[in-house]
Design a protein around this nucleic acid. Structure first.
Lengths: 195, 195
DNA sequence: ATGAGAGGTTAACACTGTTAAGTTAACAAT
DNA sequence: ATTGTTAACTTAACAGTGTTAACCTCTCAT
């Protein structure tokens, strides 16, 4: 394993075990048994390293979503499956999920915004399913891509509130998730009474 | 103006002008023309100071929501008004909004989680409106408080995606907001065909 | 006048990301 | 076989961070 890979591996371990706030260059270096400056031989700076971690997390998230795609199911079912898969991934891999949204593009202008758009194919995947629903006149949407983004945003909001521990203690997490899923999905279903 | 107020004032200025990442104790101190350690006479630590800023932001956010409450309007209209007011506040005061969700309770265990729940009355406000809709059998909800949280979470997701600059450049922001609002609101409307 | 306390300061510690300069080893060319 | 070059790595240092301990200085009540 190259040192670059070693650094990435160790960084990921550290991220998962100790969280984003403990992820410092010197700690990574220590764990990898090299000097901190060696990291700069393989990454321009910390943001560059984080970006590599982010991309990996995005790949994992996308893979999780891909797994539940099953064209034989109805699209409503697929929509719900994907929504559940999204939430599940986020809650099961909190650090890996959060790092995706933690690092802010505006704070690292060196990188093209495109880098952060790697997740794009994930949206396309969602857009495809939404389009399918529209074709079968069971989902009431105009622009599938925009709706994919709104769906994604709503899901992100749900997991974000949970991960940031902003949920009222009076509210059971699972019930919150179920209610949110219900409301979100219903927001996409065609209202035939209006048509 | 007491030094404590002065520090808060200066901190808020610095936060708005230069953003969260530039908000350091020494910079605050410099702007307030005192030594950095003086801040510790009035705040236990940086988190304590941030918490004061957060509380102020929450008050402002709540006030913005209160402003649009108008019982004479239909609750669906009220719901939309509040949702718009939420998004508007977040986009018009990005730093003040973000700080609310930026600081993480788990990273400052010294403070009771209750502190972060000051926003609770905002949820109650929302819950009241939702309850009203339920009473008039125009909104399909079981537990109003849970639904207030899911609504809030969805709105947070929408503004979060925008503020974090994660929106695809192909997608016009305003169109995204309108579509999201439509989907979110519809998620709460009763589907009479099912009843 | 003296003691106490409020309200501030300076110096320092242990961190952080990052850079410049130096070292060391491997390998190619003369 | 001795150079020169390059890659891979290290040490030392800079500027910045949050935070604490120790100190000063002024005001005011006894």
């Amino acid at each position: 394993m190259s040192l670059r890979e070693e650094i990435l591996e160790v960084s990921k371990e550290l991220l998962i075990k100790e969280g984003f706030s403990k992820l410092s260059m010197r700690r990574i270096a220590e764990r990898a048994d090299v000097s901190a400056t060696s990291i700069y031989l393989y990454f321009k700076n910390k943001d560059d390293l984080l970006l590599a971690l982010i991309e990996e997390s995005i790949e994992n998230l996308k893979a999780s979503l891909m797994e539940v795609v099953d064209a034989s199911k109805g699209f409503l079912m697929q929509l719900e499956d994907m929504a559940r898969a999204y939430i599940e991934y986020a809650l099961n891999h909190p650090q890996e999920y959060e790092i995706i949204y933690m690092v802010r593009p505006e704070e690292m202008p060196k990188y093209p915004k495109e880098k952060f758009m790697n997740i794009r194919s994930g949206y396309e995947l969602l857009a495809d399913i939404i389009r399918e629903g529209h074709d079968q006149e069971q989902i009431d949407v105009e622009d599938a891509l925009i709706n994919a983004y709104t769906l994604w945003a709503q899901l992100h909001g749900v997991v974000s509130v949970i991960l940031n521990k902003r949920l009222d203690t009076r509210i059971p997490q699972q019930q919150f998730i179920e209610q949110a899923l219900e409301n979100i999905i219903r927001g996409f279903v065609m209202q035939k009474t209006q048509a």
